[in-house]
Nucleic acid binder design. Structure first.
Lengths: 219, 219, 219, 219
DNA sequence: AATGAATGAGTATTCATTCAT
DNA sequence: GATGAATGAATACTCATTCAT
């Protein structure tokens, strides 16, 4: 469950005089560095290094470390939104759709710890980069609509109860999955049980699937 | 929901030549500073300032910034464990006990955002301070036993189903509450709904109480 | 015989944007500072100041105080080796060659007290910078070969005896000259005779020339 | 040939309320620390620690780090002077007396590297502690008189030539021995020959004995 | 578009020394 | 005499950022 990234400058060659590629490789490097060390811990030098660019180029393309962080954050969000858009819940029966949503959340976070780190970091800093209208618009999620539609279908067929707020449901599912990975290291240490093992994750999945489906079921 | 702490040196007088008090005031200042800015962002200068001590005293008493961070983390954990110990779940009927547990979790995190920040930060850093046997022992939680006992009582009286893992239940509850506050800023920004309002919290409480109790109920 | 260097920042202008010159001026400043105060006593600030650079440039070019010290030490050695290489002993009759060697040693140390200081300091510290193969190779001295060849020529013409180890001869000559200047201050103070006066040096020269030549003569 | 001293606080108990002993144990500790690390490198904390005293006592008894250094230097000198006083050269035939002197110098320095370090350090610093009349008087050496008397006896019996300055002879002998040990580490490293081995020392001894005796012999 | 050189303001840490008891 | 607590002034080193080419 370690998230440490060794600071190998990974100097794979990058073609000269290709602005688009240069910008892109800086952004990729930035995402890795920020995800691994946070805004404060990340080093512009390392980012430039990893991107096989020089420090000045970082400023040329992004203006400041902070702006670069924001760009990295936006890309990270964009990525997850793109995946969410592919999550075709409407073709599945409501209960299966909900399970699919949980699995997606669990799998994505398990495989993209960097998203956790960036999200935690941004909030710890007071979320200064997310505030502002453009950001919210850019990262506008289709998920809430998907959930709402699924809940309605479930209610219609009698498998879900009414009165469930899609955002609250989303937050509770995201919370259960996010927390598991976000705080897995301290949880494992303090409770003496390795939560990063595949079986532990599978078992926990069963637990939250049951909790959610039962919680959604009509009385 | 802002967690920023203005860097006012808050120079309230501190009696001289009182080692116990000096040490303590440094630790208090450290907890505030670390909670607000994280390990990387915190400034030893600020801590000393806030404690009305000088920087060297910090080193005199704690040795290093890192050791001070660990001490702050331990105290933070100790505090929550002390509260958990007071949580007398065994005198309540199982379902009420579970609600009590959720309320405690929600209220504590709502009122102690600094705990969230320290926990997130420690995990982001790879939990280097929590690893190691002494820490786990020191912060050994009574909560798992309380939950296990409650689950058993609930099963005995027929309100809870069997086969529920106390740790998994704890993680899911903690996740739902922790995530709400930990990532509240970005959630509010992106979904355009202020989650820090009291009514929003109350509504979310109802949601997770329902989810949990229904999830625990026998089929 | 004073070696103290006043800490005048000696801000003689240095052309901007000239990396070669910048690096070089830092190294020059470092040699002065290290020679005057030793590794421990030297201040990076002072070095930067004297080089009309700022502190960070020192790190930009040399990485650390220690690495800078090593670079200064290497240059110091390189300089003396370059001079030794010019010492054309092979064109002189053996006895004159030996006198030439003594004179060179005496004159060089007299005029380059900084070499004495750096050598003493390095040894006092346990010679950590000199250890390692590259250093030895870089500073490989031609002197031993020169001495060996001179001894052979002297033996051939009957002025020197056989069985003399070049390294031991070198060490004894270097010892007599080095110690005179290295410890001149305490010697002068304790024995109440100023050894830094030109006549004192001249007289001592006669003494060691005689000692050496007689010591080398066949029985 | 290493002179590094591990910083074990060597906390052997020391009887309380015994001023003489306290002062003495501080001085002993100071000599070890200064000899190992020099004036700049030595730490008052370490000295106090090693002496099982507290830092304030160091100041109580010696006033300052510098004064303590001077006291340590004086004791070091006093010790060698005491040994020199026991060197009964006058009972030996002149040539044997001279050999005895060389052996003494070689052996003492070999066994007391700390003397080398302190002497080098003091000179490197510009000998500020040795300057001043009291120091010279306190450490007044009998050696020059012993050498002068030996030279006279040698001249009288025809084994030594005339015109030899006792101080110059002393400096040359001390130089050959001192330099060997003082700079042994760099010499060994650069010339690739371990000068600290007993055989190497024995061989060098023969060399300087021969050099000296031949140099003193009449033409 | 790209680069290496240069900079100011910080940042944890150290250390000799003094104060109060 | 002896001790722990307290302090100011340094000190090596870092880092985001800008300049000049």
């Amino acid at each position: 469950m370690s998230t440490t990234v060794e600071s190998q400058p990974r100097k794979t060659s990058r073609s000269r005089r290709n602005p688009e590629e240069t910008r892109s490789s800086i952004l990729v490097a930035a995402r890795i560095e920020f995800a691994a060390k946070g805004l404060n811990g990340a080093r512009v030098d390392q980012i430039a290094n990893r991107a096989c660019a020089n420090k000045q180029l970082v400023y040329y393309y992004f203006g400041s470390k902070d702006a670069l962080y924001k760009a990295a954050l936006e890309e990270t969000y964009a990525e997850i939104r793109a995946l969410e858009r592919k999550l075709d819940l409407s073709t599945l029966p409501p209960r299966e759709a909900m399970v699919r949503l949980i699995d997606f959340s669990l799998d994505y976070l398990n495989e993209h710890r960097e998203f956790i780190r960036m999200l935690s970091d941004e909030n710890a800093l007071g979320a200064p980069h997310v505030r502002g209208s453009e950001f919210a618009l850019k990262t506008n999620s289709p998920l809430l609509d998907l959930i709402a539609e699924t809940l309605e279908r479930g209610f219609a067929e009698g498998t879900f109860r009414t009165g469930i707020d899609p955002l609250e449901l989303y937050v509770s599912i995201a919370g259960m999955t996010f927390f598991y990975f976000a705080n897995g290291l301290t949880l494992s240490a303090i409770f003496g049980r390795d939560l990063s093992r595949a079986e532990a994750i599978a078992s926990y999945r069963e637990h939250i699937v049951k909790l959610t489906l039962d919680g959604l079921a009509p009385d």
